[in-house]
Structures are given as C-alpha cells and as structure tokens.
Design a protein around this nucleic acid. Structure first.
Length: 303
DNA sequence: TTCCAGGGGTAGA
DNA sequence: TCTACCCATGGA
C-alpha cells in the first residue's frame, strides 16, 4: 500500500467533482457516502492491476490517493501512470474558470462557483465512457448500473475479485450473442459489440476526441455516426470529452428544467434550448449543473 | 396487463 | 425535417 498526495488545480473541490454525475457509482468506480472516497481497480499499461482510493486531502487543493494491489513502492513509471490517471478522472485538465465567471453573472447559477462545481468525473478511457453512456439509453438508472456491473465482470479481476473495466479487445472477443447473454443489454448489446470491435481493430480512435483543438461540431458529428448514439448520448459524451456546445437533453435534464425553471410544467426542447442559449459554448455544462444542483448543494443522495 | 426508463434506428412522407 | 413504429429489459 502506498499513499500519494497530488496537487489539484486552483479552485478544485473533490466532492462536487466526484458527484458531478452518476459515474462515481458505475463499476469499476465505487463511492463511499460516509467518507466521500471514490475508488476503482485500474489496469496499468504494463498489465498490473491497482486499486485506487481517491479522497480530498487534508490541505486545500490536495487529493489523497491510496494505491493498493501491487508491490510498493511503485516503480516511477507506474507512479507516473497512476498520477496521470487520477488527474484525468478528476478533471485536473478541465479549465472551468471561464464557466465560473459566466455562471456568476447568471441568476440562479451563483452556487456553481461557490460549490466548486463544473468539473466532470470521467473514465480513464473514452471507450469506457462510451460504453457506459450507451448503457444509459432508454433504460432506468438502476438497470444501467446492473448492465455496467455485468459488463465489468469481463475485465480482469484482482486478488479480491474486483474487476477492472474490460478493454475493447476483451469485449470484442466475445461474439455478440455471448456478450449479450452475459450483459443483458437488450438491443444495445449489438451496438456495444460493434463499438468494441471498431476500437479494437483500429477503425475508431475515440481518445482523439479529447483534443481541445478539435471543433465541437466535428466531434459531435462523429459521435452521432456511432450506432446507438443519438442526440442525448452524443451530447452527454461531448461533456465528457470537454466540449459543452451540445445540450444532450434526456428525461433527467427535462425534469430538472421543469422543476427549476418552468413552474413544474413540461417544456418543449426548443424552450429549454432558449433558456441555456445565453451560456453559449458552456450551455451543455449549464444544463448538467441544473441536473446535479440538488445532489451537490444539498447532498440529495439520488445516485 | 400496460407503461416506461438518463432513447435511437429505420422507413416513409 | 417530422412522424410512426419497432427495438430488449425489468421494475412499478
């Protein structure tokens, strides 16, 4: 076991980042309500499996990471990989200052900067986020958690039986029927298998989408071209690769808008879009802040 | 039994 | 661009 202390960017807050959406409770992530810790098993580039436990550090702007499962002290290469992975998961590279400045000036959004919200918890690979997003479509959150949990058992397990997220090759190695017999993803199973196969065989490189130099419209178009990814799924994925110019509306976003901004009345998507239009290139993030406001500000425990 | 969930694909207008 | 219909799954 080895304990690390990582320096987070200015203004970073652990809790609102960990709870920025439901990802912290989708395997292999786990969230401990009492301690606020986020943990997961991670497969390193050299094949070693580590269990990472991430938490707010004692000092402001510090994140504490406990690494378990491999011989310690870690080699320098493994140490560097763990630091990079944790920084990515917690969005250390996400620049939220401009969004905070904008939110500060918008009625009803001043809490965002005060709470230190705006960073999205992401997976170590875009592939993992794609697979999970696909499994949120047209199903309940409960079912999503169950499908993801079954999918994750295809990954390698550590000595305690805790699995890492399977690689595209591990998922693609099963035939579609066997995959779906295991994951029980319904019609989504074929899309999941095709996605894994495209990545494993090099036809698709979703990691590229994290390049901030890419135009959001181009990334969005490529996401929409994936089977099973419509406006909701592609819009939600955009948030996870650092582009916020799509709304990614789903039933949760519409419900949040109805409650917060429309006197409990249903609103057409064009009305919702008009509300978020003043946020410009940040509108996709503003949508999600409304969804998570109760969880982050009040600890609603809805995850 | 029917409805619906953190929707999307396809066919036909 | 819009609509109708279909798509597995499982809880309410």
């Amino acid at each position: 076991m080895q304990s690390l202390r990582l320096a987070a960017p200015s203004g970073f807050q652990f809790r609102p980042t960990a709870l920025s959406h439901g990802w912290c409770v989708l395997r292999p992530f786990a969230h401990d309500d009492a301690s606020g810790q986020v943990s997961r098993v991670q497969r390193l580039a050299d094949g070693g499996l580590v269990h990472l436990t991430m938490a707010a550090g004692e000092a402001p702007g510090e994140v504490r990471v406990v690494v378990d499962g491999l011989e310690t002290p870690l080699t320098l290469a493994r140490l560097a990989e763990v630091e990079t992975t944790v920084g990515r998961i917690l969005g250390f590279d996400q620049r939220v200052e401009d969004f905070h400045a904008l939110a500060r000036a918008m009625p009803g959004y001043d809490w965002v900067e005060r709470a230190g919200a705006g960073r999205m918890l992401v997976s170590p690979t875009v592939w993992e986020d794609l697979a999970k997003t696909l499994l949120t479509t047209n199903t309940t959150w409960r079912m999503t958690k169950d499908m993801v949990a079954r999918l994750v058992t295809l990954g390698e397990a550590d000595a305690h039986g805790r699995h890492s997220f399977p690689t595209p090759a591990q998922v693609a190695a099963l035939d579609p029927e066997a995959l779906n017999a295991h994951v029980r993803a319904g019609y989504r199973g074929a899309y999941l298998h095709a996605l894994a196969l495209d990545i494993a065989e090099g036809r698709l490189d979703p990691e590229r989408w994290r390049d901030p130099a890419l135009q959001g419209a181009d990334v969005y178009r490529e996401m929409l071209a994936l089977k099973g990814f419509g406006p909701y799924a592609a819009g939600a994925m955009m948030r996870l690769v650092g582009h916020f110019d799509e709304l990614g509306l789903d039933s949760v976003c519409r419900a949040a808008f109805r409650t917060l901004w429309n006197n409990g009345e249903p609103a057409a998507d064009r009305e919702i879009a008009a509300h978020y239009a003043p946020f410009g290139r940040w509108r996709g993030l503003a949508v999600w802040m409304d969804v998570m406001r109760d969880e982050i500000v009040n600890g609603a425990g809805s995850l």
